[in-house]
Simulated assay, not measured.
Amino acid sequence: MDDERVLFHAFRAGASGLYRIDVTTRAVEQLEYGPSLRSGLSVDRAGRYIVQSFSSLEAGDEISVFDRETGETRLVTSWNRALLEEHPPARWERFEVRRDEFTIEAWLLFPPDFDPAKRYPLVLAIHGGPNSFYGYGFDPTRELLATNGFLVVYANPRGSTSYGRRFAQQVRRDWGGQDYLDLMAVVDQVLERPYVDRERLGVWGYSYGGYMTAWIIGQTDRFKAAVCGAPAFDLESMYGTSDISHVFGELQWGGPPHAEREWYEAHSPSTFAHRARTPTLIVHGEADERCPIGQGEQMFVALVKAGCEVEFVRYPGGSHGVLWEGPSEHRHDFLTRILDWFRSHLGGPA
């Protein structure tokens, strides 16, 4: 902005904000904050207008402009308006769960034609990372499920970003520990509502969310269907095959396998997969370097040996981002499969 002040965009509590920092005093001033997720940053020569890509739970992906003089944000595109008028997005509600010293932020998505007199299946959606977050952005998978008769709950358990360094570091050397219990507490709170059918629960996650999905089905049989994407299933084998785990793994897991073998065993879903009984769909890109295809292969074999109903879908040439950046036919195939899997195992509103 000038020699002493810098404009920047940052995420806080699952949402985007614009901030200004004084490089001399280190004082930070919030210019704008709201229930959306944005990226990029382009400023006009006068420094009045700030342009960003914009995503919200109501609008999908658009372009927004923030006016520093008026303090107003407006959307200057409407690419998705006609579609969303014809096919309304999910309704939503934010809520909180208190565990120990931490407040866990969560969201519940409702079908557009939600009827509280009916009973609905519930799907828990788990983000990747673990140092990532969910929030106020439009997500095609969650929207697909919610607009087809499912309640969808998602949360930011300890380890998530956008809540400060200390909260994000809680997951180090505790994969499958308090993060898992945070998520179960979120589900338990939603189950107190009369329109949620506790006998028809599903779980879905990708990457670290895939790790947590694989972990969950080895810890409990409360979920009647699971969709597991690109999981970290066996942490010891992942340490030597992933493109980052020889560094990332030591940071998250406390050291290499030979130095932390008991920890690796205690926190790997592979250790508990023989107990799994939840019907599970595994999806994985064959060219995934982050969570290599071998992780999905190991999980598939373990669930077959456990007598669990399981299907394994492999996307040729698919990277770790295949469900978001891969060929359109792969993305369409995945969305069709996840909807069909939950429909066939959980049913619809009753």
Rank of each mutant, 00 (worst) to 15 (best):
D2W: 05
D2R: 05
E4V: 13
F11D: 13
R12T: 11
G14D: 10
G14E: 10
A15D: 10
S16C: 11
Y19T: 03
R20N: 13
V23R: 14
T25Y: 12
A27G: 14
E29K: 14
E32F: 10
R38I: 06
S39I: 10
R45E: 15
R48H: 13
R48G: 08
I50R: 07
V51I: 14
V51G: 09
S55G: 07
S56K: 02
L57W: 04
I63R: 08
I63M: 11
S64D: 12
D67A: 12
R68Y: 08
T73W: 08
T77Y: 09
L84E: 09
L84Q: 12
H87S: 14
F95G: 05
E96D: 15
R98W: 07
F102Q: 13
T103L: 15
E105Q: 13
A106H: 01
F110A: 12
P111Q: 13
P111F: 11
P111N: 14
P112C: 13
F114S: 10
D115P: 04
P116S: 15
K118F: 03
R119G: 01
Y120N: 07
P121W: 02
A125G: 08
A125D: 11
H127Y: 05
N131H: 15
G135T: 03
Y136R: 03
F138W: 12
F138Q: 02
D139Y: 07
R142W: 05
R142H: 08
L145N: 04
T147Y: 12
N148S: 15
G149H: 05
G149N: 10
F150H: 04
F150C: 05
F150S: 03
Y154I: 00
N156K: 06
R158A: 02
G164H: 10
V171A: 06
D174Q: 15
W175V: 06
G176S: 09
L181D: 11
V186F: 01
Q189A: 13
V190F: 00
L191R: 05
L191F: 05
E192W: 05
R198D: 09
R200L: 09
W204I: 06
W204E: 06
S207R: 02
G210V: 02
Y211Q: 06
W215V: 01
Q219R: 14
D221C: 04
A230R: 00
L235G: 04
L235E: 08
S237Q: 13
G240I: 00
T241K: 03
S242I: 01
I244P: 01
S245P: 00
E250Q: 14
E260Q: 15
E262C: 03
E262D: 15
Y264D: 08
Y264M: 08
P269G: 07
R275Q: 13
A276W: 06
T278W: 06
H284R: 04
E286V: 00
A287G: 09
R290G: 02
C291S: 10
P292D: 01
P292I: 00
P292N: 02
I293P: 00
I293W: 06
F300D: 02
A302H: 03
L303C: 06
V304S: 10
V304E: 15
A306G: 08
G307V: 03
G307H: 04
G321D: 12
G321T: 07
L323C: 05
R331Q: 14
R331F: 08
F334M: 11
R337V: 02
I338G: 01
I338E: 09
D340C: 04
R343C: 08
G347L: 08
